[in-house]
Amino acid sequence: MKKGVLLVNLGSPDSPNPKDVKKYLGEFLMDPRVIDVPKWARTLLVKGIILNTRPKQSAKAYQKIWWENGSPLIVISEELQQKVQEQVEYPVALAMRYGSMTIKKGLQELVDKGVEDVYLIPLYPQFAMATTETILVLAEEIRQQHFPNLKIESLPAFYNKPEYIKTLSESIKSHLQGKNYDHLLFSYHGVPERHIRKSDITNGHCKPSDIIDCACCKTESKAHEFCYKHQCKEVTRLVAEYLNLEEGTYSTSFQSRLGFDPWLQPYTDRTIERLGQSGIENMAIVTPAFVSDCLETLEEIAMEGEEIFHEVGGKDFTTVPCLNTDQNWVNNLVKWIEEWAKTPATI
């Protein structure tokens, strides 16, 4: 069976124009794994409220970070695809979960090249309903409807793979070399607390109180395979261990909450504010839930986060870029692809 690879990231509007942003947000927010409420309630919330107010605001944010050659996320992902393709003999395609670069188009590109066995790589280190799961579910739906003879396997969450931790840690070390900072904040994309409970395959390991104090994250369980918060906490722990960070000089937070339901805490914006008010003058921040810089890293963290820090008296605010097209990150992907390719295909 001829093998091929499909890299999949979140997606982006076609332009920072409010019309394109509205179309993109509509697709994104109507995903039942993003806003996981009954369809009637989701429709009322998204189409009746959010899409009447948020697109203009989001468009302004996209305009701040948009590059001459397009969306940073798309441009970086395309460069990553090209670098990986240069190092493997198998066709490598790129797709996005939302937007015009659809998973169907990505699979079609591979099928047109004769591919029968696809290695789907969600470009997210940690598993979450609203990222990895929605990609895998949609890919399987598309396979059944349009490519029934295609075989699709996927790369599991790689948050704790030693080579990934080394690559992430060395990238942080390199970008902070010579920088004077008092605290390193690991900021991850947030999800509603209920997503953690819904992803608990044991139906009992994660309890409401545990989600807040992380007691369940510290207790070994099969639930950790799909527990986003545990996986985020583990990345912080492993990187801190690799870099020999002293306790109290680093912490974990969660960004990008939406609505009024409780999301994973502590919140990044409030944490930045608290650190500045507590006397931290120089801080650095890294965003390990993302492998490519995007709106959430370039605008929400590098712009809004820095503004918050300065407003409360902070002086130096350093953002560590995502792995983007770092050669060691490319090498990680190539290694995982080669390992998969050596495994005999089964029908």
Results as ranks from 00 to 15, higher is better:
Phe147Leu: 07
Asp112Lys: 13
Leu298Phe: 03
Lys173Asn: 04
Gln85Phe: 13
Glu193Asp: 14
Gln126His: 14
Ala61Lys: 13
Pro162Phe: 12
Thr268Met: 04
Gly313Cys: 04
Arg42Met: 09
Leu25Gln: 08
Val111Tyr: 08
Phe186Glu: 00
Ala93Gly: 07
Lys335Ile: 06
Tyr119Asp: 11
Cys232Ser: 10
Val235Gln: 05
Ser77Glu: 05
Pro125Trp: 04
Gln144Glu: 13
Val21Glu: 02
Glu339Ser: 12
Glu193Pro: 13
Ala95Met: 11
Gly313Asn: 05
Tyr267Thr: 10
Gln82Val: 11
Pro125Phe: 05
Glu141Cys: 09
Glu78Arg: 05
Gly259Ile: 15
Glu86Ala: 14
His183Met: 02
Gln63Glu: 14
Ile172Lys: 00
Ser100Phe: 07
Ile337Asp: 04
Pro125Gly: 06
Ser187Leu: 00
Ile76Val: 09
Ser174Ile: 05
Arg197Tyr: 12
Leu25Phe: 08
Leu185Glu: 00
Ile50Arg: 08
Thr271His: 01
Gly259Lys: 13
Val235Trp: 00
Ile135Thr: 10
Thr134Ile: 00
Lys23Ile: 09
Tyr98Asp: 01
Val235Phe: 00
Ala341Gln: 02
Gly114Trp: 09
Pro38Lys: 08
Pro162His: 13
Gln85Ala: 15
Thr268Val: 07
Lys64Trp: 02
Val118Glu: 01
Ser278Tyr: 06
Ile196Met: 08
Pro288Met: 05
Pro208Ser: 13
Ser154Asn: 15
Val291Met: 11
Asp117Pro: 00
Ile142Asn: 04
Thr132Glu: 05
Ser256Tyr: 11
Thr53Pro: 05
Asp182His: 06
Glu300Gly: 10
Trp67Met: 12
Gly313Tyr: 02
Gln145His: 12
Ser292Ile: 08
Val286Leu: 12
Lys198Glu: 15
Glu141Ile: 08
Pro38Arg: 07
Leu51Ile: 11
Val21Ala: 02
Asp213Gly: 02
Lys22His: 04
Lys218Val: 04
Leu136Lys: 00
Tyr242Glu: 02
Ala95Val: 13
Thr167Ser: 14
Pro32Ala: 04
Asn69Arg: 10
Leu7Arg: 02
His195Val: 14
Cys216Gln: 12
Tyr242Gln: 01
Ala157Trp: 07
Ala215Gln: 14
Glu306Phe: 00
Gly276Met: 06
Tyr119Ile: 14
Asn9Cys: 01
His205Cys: 12
Met303Gly: 06
Ser71Pro: 15
Arg197Ala: 15
Ser221Phe: 09
Glu140Asn: 13
Leu107Ile: 08
Ser221Lys: 08
His146Tyr: 14
Lys23Ser: 09
Phe158Asp: 05
Glu109Phe: 13
Val88Leu: 10
Ala139Tyr: 02
Asp20Ala: 12
Glu281Ile: 01
Leu176Ser: 07
Cys227Phe: 08
Cys322Lys: 03
Met283Gln: 01
Pro16Asp: 04
Ser209Arg: 13
Ile308Asp: 00
Thr271Phe: 01
His205Asp: 08
Lys104Tyr: 12
Asp14Ala: 11
Gly248Asp: 06
Ala345Gly: 01
Asp210Tyr: 12
Val320Phe: 00
Asn69Thr: 10
Val8His: 04
Val115Gln: 02
Gly4Thr: 04
Ser278Lys: 11
Ile201Leu: 13
Leu168Phe: 06
Asp326Gln: 14
Glu311Gly: 03
Pro156Arg: 12
Ser256Asp: 11
Glu79Asp: 10
Ile308Lys: 01
Val137Trp: 01
Ile212Tyr: 06
His183Val: 01
